[in-house]
């Protein structure tokens, strides 16, 4: 019964939000985890030469917040991520104060499928947006 009740805690237009940021140290950890040591993410001088303000946060490091959404921030632990589509619109930098926002667009009663619209912003300007799909498996 409790499993059914936790599905009922999901509702369309449900909004989930939190602030976050990434440090230079976390960038280094991500470089090791991913194997991507491109200097645009690790060397501010190199990134400035390319026209950025400083070293650019990895797009897929930003996307980790989408994993956090599905795994950690939903009403229960029964959702499994099945698809991510992400557009990286503007760069972000270490220590930027970023904001993650997700809206549940679709809750399918027949398939237990979930669709989320996600947005990562800085000072209300969108840096990254994405669509997530998940299945709910109690």
């Amino acid at each position: 019964m409790s499993k059914i009740n936790s599905w009922d805690k999901y509702y369309e237009e449900m909004k989930i939000e939190w602030p976050f940021s990434f440090s230079k140290r976390e960038m280094s950890i991500f470089a090791k985890l991913s194997g991507d040591f491109n200097p645009i993410h690790l060397n501010p001088d190199f990134a400035i030469l390319k026209g950025f303000d400083t070293a650019v946060i990895y797009g897929l490091l930003l996307s980790t917040q989408m994993s956090r959404l599905i795994g950690q921030e939903l009403p229960d632990k029964n959702a499994i991520l099945t698809s991510i589509k992400v557009d990286f619109i503007k760069p972000s930098y270490p220590e930027d104060k970023l904001f993650f926002s997700a809206t549940l667009l679709t809750k399918s009663e027949s398939t237990k499928g979930l669709e989320f619209d996600c947005n990562i912003s800085k000072k209300h300007k969108t840096l990254c947006k994405g669509k997530l799909e998940a299945i709910w498996k109690p």
């Binding site: 099945t82 679709t106 399918s108 027949s110 398939t111 499928g113």
Partner: peptide
Amino acid sequence: IRLIISIEKTFNLRF
């Protein structure tokens, strides 16, 4: 799941 959700949206109904 994608198919059913897409059908539900297109025809504006829920199964």
